[in-house]
Every structure is written in structure tokens, then in C-alpha cells.
Design a protein around this nucleic acid. Sequence first.
DNA 1: CTGAAAGCGCTTACAG
DNA 2: CTGAAAGCGCTTACAG
Lengths: 351, 351
Amino acid sequence: MVSNKVRIKDIARIAGVSIGTVDRVIHNRGEVAEKTLKRVRKIIEETDYSPNILAQVLKATKNIQLVSLLPEPKENNKFWNRHPLGIQRALEEIYPIPVSHTLITYDLLSEKDFKKSASFVFSLKPDGVIIAPIFKSETIAFTQRLSKEKIPFVFVDGYIEDSEFLAYIGEDIFRSGHVAAQLIDLVTPSDKDILIVTIARNIHNNQHLEKRSRGFFSYFSGDCINKGKRIHLNIPDPSNESISSAMDKILAAETAIKSVFLTGSRSFLLARYFENRGISDINLVGYDLLDENIEFLKKGKIRFLINQRPDEQTRLAVRKLTDFLTKKKEPEVIEYLPVDIVTSENIDFFV
Amino acid sequence: MVSNKVRIKDIARIAGVSIGTVDRVIHNRGEVAEKTLKRVRKIIEETDYSPNILAQVLKATKNIQLVSLLPEPKENNKFWNRHPLGIQRALEEIYPIPVSHTLITYDLLSEKDFKKSASFVFSLKPDGVIIAPIFKSETIAFTQRLSKEKIPFVFVDGYIEDSEFLAYIGEDIFRSGHVAAQLIDLVTPSDKDILIVTIARNIHNNQHLEKRSRGFFSYFSGDCINKGKRIHLNIPDPSNESISSAMDKILAAETAIKSVFLTGSRSFLLARYFENRGISDINLVGYDLLDENIEFLKKGKIRFLINQRPDEQTRLAVRKLTDFLTKKKEPEVIEYLPVDIVTSENIDFFV
DNA sequence: CTGAAAGCGCTTACAG
DNA sequence: CTGAAAGCGCTTACAG
């Protein structure tokens, strides 16, 4: 891997030409006689030459410019806050290879803001782009322009199938629904019922959340312990009143519910509801290590949180882009990160 | 981080000296007039100069030599098999910085072999060493010699407190006992009993396993759901007959046992025992992603496995050593990796 | 005590 | 179409 002793100079000597000519061959810069070209190519092949990146980069002095287009973290949201941390870590790891990075954020609730930020990205002349595809059609437009300008890009958090992305790093969304389902299955008395709640405050998230529920139900269509009902509840409005009234209603009607799965990241809203109502015998399972979620996890009001490794998503995104740009290394296109199961006992390792 | 424009040349110009003199100051090579020394030092300070590692390494052509001293993976053991993978990954990540690595293994059951391998390490003249401290007193002797020869070393898998290690990367052993306990607590009916089994085939592992049990019991001395008994069973001999007879005896005496925690990595032995006896209503929780364990996990015969991220231990070990050797970066001394909770539904992400 | 020069492996601009 | 030379930032051996 690192043992790479053949230098341009050696190739030149063997071929009986100058190093300038060898360089022209290596970089297909033309202006080389067909015969020389072939001879040099053959020697490169035979000696298994690969360039010393150290020297290449030293000479170049040209920074690689990466740009990320990610949601602005709202209200101290520890999910989107973590993406930049992973980028920072990657840059430190990659040093001394000079990679610089600019983070562009947009309002998670505004397509318009996304479009504005997206067009700003191009003004930075990036060599590579990292993007979280919150808004589907706007993202498609953006990635089409990236493709046209031959700028490689990597998705985190989710991906859009028919775009020309270099890689996706993130959750296996369907599978993560399975994991949540199993956890619920293990902690729910077998004759009790299970409630699946989706709080869809943003219609664009639906795909993501729906895929998780499908994974969830897919688990229960197989071997499982639970013999009770599985009830799906959709709460369109994330306000406390709306949640309370919807939950009051369903719990009154369905008294055997002993576990609740929230398909999104705001399980603290339900935990708070249970706390207010003095309900303590219902298992709650949700997503993401938001501060409020962690608080309820530690208090025992949330049983399990599932972690998507947001920082690892971006760390690997930077690595893959950089490897591609400096070493022409084609990455695995889809890289699913482990679905972490987090409880009050192992949470401290993740924050 | 990467923006680092000041070069030796600049310092030299400002100070009105040659670059050779600046270099002498930077590396404390002496032969510099006191007055010059001070002036140059001041400018280095003010300009916040830090060297371009790229150029340094390019000039040096000197590989960093790392050596790992790890147990020989036995019988396709996926635990010790994974440590070398992490090293490989780290080397790929670190490229183009030239780091080479030699793996020295020893028989997990032989102190003599350890000593032989340990002394061989020195003949390789390593710049840094990675070590898993299986045998306590032999490891102490080894690390003392490393310290005397000023060779930095990093522990994985476990560490010996009063040795001068650069870092430890691995499990928080006590805390991981807590996690196991909580999982058992969540899946065991509250009025049923819990059995803790230690199979100590190797007396040197005892410390490790005992620390896990202490963590386990510590959890149950706090808030918990379970109201049953917690029974500790030690099985000195790992043969199938010995396990069967010990288990037969305890299960006959204690009929309310519904969960078993194995403090070590061979939970497949117990799973196999349960399978042979046709017992299917006991939850089994153990450690490490050995092939046999995974098989039983997928079949539902093991509920949870706890993963110590063996490959991540070594990956980080290499990084820390290299960062220290090339950038003089002092690492966090103790780095606990997350205690992964693994079930049949998320196992595929970990293998 | 100090400076000028060569060289690590690569790229680029220029002369022929 | 080809080669010789300069230079990226650093280190080292040598001359004075």
C-alpha cells in the first residue's frame, strides 16, 4: 500500500526519455510520439507505478474546496449540529492534505431559502459538495446542475435515487424501522398493543418517516413475540395541544397500548405528554440524540433512542470526496452506517 | 487548521537570517547565537508558524515503523481477527504519510510465547507499539522496557494502570456490565431470576470479566425493574460436559431463572446448551461478534450481543500513534469506545 | 556561528 | 515532439 518505490525518474531512465515526457504520458497531456507513448505506458504498467501524492500535493499548493449544503440547526438541535463536527474531524484527519471547507446552511422549513443557498454554492466554485436532500424537487434541480458542471457530490441523511451521486452515507432507513420494532417487541408484554406515531410537521419528511414505518411493520409481519394490535396514528400538527388531544383520544379508545414508537426525532414531545399525564408504564422508542430526548432517556421516560451517527455521516462524506478527488478512488456508492441502539446506560459514549 | 501560509523562508526574511539558521532554531540543533535565537523564536511565535508536514515527510523518506503485539486469532475467532483490519484501514486513511506496520502475534494461552514475541518486537526497532495486555506481569515487563527505550505504546482491549502508555482505546469495562444488566432488566419478567455466568478458561482474563460482573451488579443496586434473584455461577472448565453439568444443576435448583448473562465472549456455548436441552424461554446476553455467536443471535437463541468495536480500537490506536509521532499531538489518554448493543436486526451493520 | 546549495518526487513553462 | 530547469517547503551536509 505504502511501499511505492518507483519514481517518475526511474520510469524515465528505463524508457530512455526525460521525466517531462513521462509526465506527459501519465497525465495524457499529448505531444508525445506514439512509439514513446507506448513504451512509457508499458513500463508504467510493469513497474506498477503510482504517484507520490505527497509530492503532488506539495507541488500543487491548490486547496481542494468542499462545500456542504445542510439545514441550519434549529433551537440547539443536536442532530444537525453534529454534521459540522464530523466534517471538522475529517479535515483534521486528512491533514496535511490541504482541504478547505465551507458550510452553507438553509432554513429546514423553506424551499425558497434552500434554492437561494443552493445557487450560492456554485459561486464558491466547489470541487465537491455534500448535501442533505431535505426538499426533493429542489434537490433534484440542484444535483442536475452539479452533474452538468461535473462537480461530484455526496448525500448524507438520505438520497435521491436517480441522481448521479458519488456516494450516500447514512441510515438504512427501512432496516432501522426493523430495529425499532424489535426493541419494542422485546419490551412489550406479548398481549399488549403498540402505537406507531408519526408527527409530520413537514411534508417533505414524509418519505423518510414512511419508510421507517414500513420497516417497522415489516418486522411484525415476520416472527415476533407480540400478539397485540399495532395501531398507526398520524399527528399533522406538532403543537403540544394537538399532540395532547390526539394522544388523549387514542389512549382512551385503546387501553391496551403499552408501547409507542415515534418515527421521527421529537420523541421528547411524547415523553413530555406522558409526564404531564402521569403515565409511566408505556415504553417509548424514538430517534436521534437531541438534548431533550437525552434528558428523557436518562430519566427513564424514553426506553430506547436510535442514533443515525450524524457526525460519522459527514466525516465519511468528506473522506470519500477527498479520496475521489486526490486519488481517483471510487467509493462504495451506498454506505449504510450502523443503526445504534442507545439507552440511558450507554448514551454517554455517544455525546 | 490547514491555512498555514508562513514558511521557513518568510521567517528567515523577517529575521534577516538564512533558512538554515531558522531550521536550527526550530529543531534546537544549537550552533546559533543567543541573540539570533531569541529573535527567530519571537518571530516564530508571532507568526504562529507550524511546519508543512507534507514537505517534512517528503524530505524525510523515513517510514514510521509501527508494531502490534496481539493474540493470534484462534479457530477463526472474529474478535482478534478484527484488530488487524482496523490497522489496515488506518494505514489507508493515513496515506500518503508513509507508515509501515508489522503484526506480531502470540498464543493467547502461553505466557512463554508472549515473552518470545515481545522480545522479538524490539528487534524490529519500532517507532511505536500497539499492545493488548493479556498477561499482566509479562506485559508490565514489556512496557517497562518500551518506556526505557522511549518507544511510545498504546493499549487496546484493556490497560495496565501504572504503565506509561500513550493511550488506551477500548471498552469501558465496568460500564459495559451496566449496559448488559439494563438489557437483561428490560427483557426479564420482573418476578423472575437472573443468572450471571463466568467461564474463566484463562485465569488472566479474570480481571476483565470480574469488572464486567461488578458493573452488572452495580446496575442492579440502583433503580431497576427486576425484583427476582441474581445468581452468580462460575464455570472454570469451558468443556461442553462441564458446562452442561453446571447448568443442569443450577437450573434444577433455581427454576425461576429466565435470563442469563455471560461475562465473556463464548455465549454460543450456552446457546448450544439451551438448544440441546430444548430450552427456549431464557434470554441470553453476551459479548463479541464471534461467528458462532452471530449464528445464534440470528436464530433468536441469543438476545443481545455487546460489541467492543475491536477494529475501531486498533484503527484509533494507529492514528494516535501516528499523530503523536508526526505532529507531536498528545492524545486523550483514555478513549472509551461506545458499547454497541447488537441484535439480530442490526447485526448486519457490524460485520 | 552562519549561509548557500543540493535534493525529496512531482509539475509546469519554456527553449529547441 | 522532447529535454532541461525551476520551484513547492523542508532538511542536511558542507564551506567558511
